[in-house]
């Protein structure tokens, strides 16, 4: 399509979205991959993660909830006969945990790169090959033009590239069409759309993270000083009692003498340490 005449004609280009118009997400192109979190799906232009392209996830620190946010994505993309690539993750993705969450281990590919240059090269190769559904990378200091290359490669290979970067990068411009920011607030993990195509960013959205830890915490015993405290199932985030040092020291003394319950491991129920113990 060629543009003639006044600059206003430029605005008629179908790829140009004007902030005054209804957001593109109102037209709901439902070809995205559901994030598993309804408020976030609403805020994203594709109704979920884009199927191809580059996205950035900005985290205050690693392990702040990004893994749980990505699990539904990993689970769905694992169904494709393509690689799920991890490049230089901060720690090892723990295979038994992934398998329990239904992530296809046989499609997982773990890469270690010593230099940032190698990481970006590997990411570009993976994205452009068409053989990877998701490529997650933890780069140190990528340049905007390198990110632009990744975006082009991702479109070519119909892959989703995900860059995990520190929150400090939110102030820097980035050619990635989608940027999300994670934060931990008092109420739990929250996510915000910093930038997306065809829409404004969003406010902070609370993620009801279906963490195994959160669910199991309810029914299980929590080690407290004197007694086993059982929390009801429906309590989503009970604030567990803070242990005092003496209590834990006591528990640890007692532990070796407890018997193993074959079904559930250790069931701790303690009585105050008396002279007999």
């Amino acid at each position: 399509m060629t543009i003639h005449g006044s600059p206003l004609n430029l605005l008629r280009h179908p790829a140009v979205w004007r902030a005054g118009e209804a957001p593109l997400s109102a037209q709901r192109r439902q070809d995205g991959i559901a994030t598993g979190f309804a408020p976030l799906d609403q805020a994203l232009p594709d109704g979920g993660w884009p199927v191809s392209g580059l996205a950035e996830l900005l985290c205050p620190h690693w392990g702040c909830g990004e893994a749980e946010l990505l699990l539904p994505l990993l689970r769905q993309l694992g169904a494709q006969q393509r690689w799920l690539v991890w490049i230089n993750p901060p720690w090892l993705p723990f295979a038994p945990a992934l398998a329990r969450q239904g992530v296809a281990l046989e499609h997982t590919l773990l890469l270690r790169c010593e230099r940032d240059k190698d990481l970006l090269w590997a990411m570009e190769q993976c994205l452009g090959s068409g053989s990877c559904s998701l490529v997650q990378g933890w780069p140190a200091r990528p340049q905007p033009q390198q990110l632009r290359r990744l975006q082009l490669a991702a479109q070519k290979g119909h892959s989703l590239g995900l860059l995990l970067r520190p929150s400090a990068c939110a102030q820097q411009p980035s050619p990635a069409p989608l940027r999300l920011e994670l934060a931990r607030h008092a109420a739990g993990v929250q996510v915000r759309v910093v930038k997306c195509r065809g829409n404004w960013g969003s406010d902070w959205l609370a993620l009801q993270v279906p963490v195994a830890a959160g669910q199991e915490r309810g029914g299980d015993a929590v080690v407290s000083g004197q007694v086993a405290v059982a929390y009801p199932e429906q309590a989503a985030f009970p604030a567990p009692p803070v242990l005092n040092a003496d209590a834990v020291a006591n528990v640890l003394q007692v532990l070796p003498r407890l018997k193993m319950d074959s079904a559930s491991g250790w069931n701790v129920s303690l009585t105050p340490p008396g002279p007999g113990l």
Binding site: P93, T108, S131, H158
Partner: peptide
């Protein structure tokens, strides 16, 4: 839309191994 078969997936692994080294490209198993 993508054309990914076993051959092209292995080609990618070959390419990555050639630059990054054999030990730096692996899968996860239990």
């Amino acid at each position: 839309p993508w054309q990914s078969d076993n051959v092209s997936r292995q080609q990618l692994v070959d390419k990555l191994k050639a630059r990054l080294g054999d030990t730096n490209v692996c899968g996860l198993g239990m």
